[in-house]
Write a protein that binds this DNA or RNA. Structure first.
Lengths: 149, 149
DNA sequence: GGATTTTCTTTGACACGTCAAAGAGCGTAG
DNA sequence: CTACGCTCTTTGACGTGTCAAAGAAAATCC
């Protein structure tokens, strides 16, 4: 064991607060989104797909872009396909590959859910921060997230 | 639909960064903890239990304290009991109730994992923030988490 | 060109969380 | 004291994520 330094009182209090943030924000956004008929994961898949000009994506790159494991994406895509939100076709240029694309229905559902989700992000997060705070938060977030894995 | 305001460029960039923080930090801490043989949930249960002087807690209050659903805690406790980390007994004062307490093994395992987890929190988060930043972050986190559900 | 290794997606088994329902005891109103 | 409603914990079904292994096609090496 390395020489462990315990947390100071300030650090401890701050860490407890941050831990709460880390649970509470995602769970509230998820709840709001559920009322629109989508899980957070669904929403991410749909919006990531829709950001690509042609709205199609091979699993490998798609998973990488989303920072998901391929297995996770494959599982989730299977479920979304069953619901008619996306479709898979074999990749003509590589017979091992699968290509995912949005169905019209998937696109519509995303379009319906997006404004509500945006309100949710505002109402549960962004609108409660000053521009300065948001800037600090972005710097911190980027720095931490960019640490080596 | 309410008059939806889209995100400004700054807000959008900041929100993307924060979203990344929200996924990446918990997942790294979870990974570190897994290597010590515990899930994040396990660790929370053990440490919450151990913080109580007598190390015993009835499910209802325990769940409330942890902000977990009773069902979730009951399920998770069943799994942890099977692993010998905690035990349940009937509540003598209310025959519907269940009382949870740490086993010696559970306490030992927590004691072994705690320093490593602490290093992890430092190395993946706290040590990369100045005292000022940590203070801002605590204020923000508290404010956001305390919003009405 | 044929064998071997690598890459890619899917599948299966399992741990986890949620929601709804079941099962049992408590509390109270009459 | 009995019947009703309320509260408590557990259970079951299901959607989800992870990890390991299977199955198939490419790429590489001789």
């Amino acid at each position: 064991m390395t020489g462990t330094r315990w947390l100071s009182t300030d650090e401890e209090r701050a860490w407890r607060a941050v831990r709460r943030l880390l649970t509470v924000v995602p769970s509230r956004l998820a709840r709001d989104l559920n009322q629109l008929g989508l899980s957070t994961a669904d929403y991410e898949v749909l919006s990531t797909l829709s950001e690509k000009p042609d709205r199609r994506w091979g699993l490998k790159d798609f998973a990488e872009k989303m920072q998901w494991s391929r297995s996770r994406l494959s599982h989730h895509a299977a479920r979304m396909e069953a619901r008619g939100l996306i479709e898979r076709e074999p990749d003509p240029s590589d017979a091992r590959g699968s290509i995912y694309h949005l169905t019209d229905q998937g696109f519509e559902i995303l379009a319906e859910a997006a404004p509500g989700h945006l309100d949710s992000v505002r109402g549960r997060f962004i609108d409660h921060l000053s521009a300065d705070e948001l800037a600090v938060l972005e710097r911190i977030s980027t720095r931490i997230a960019d640490l080596p894995d």
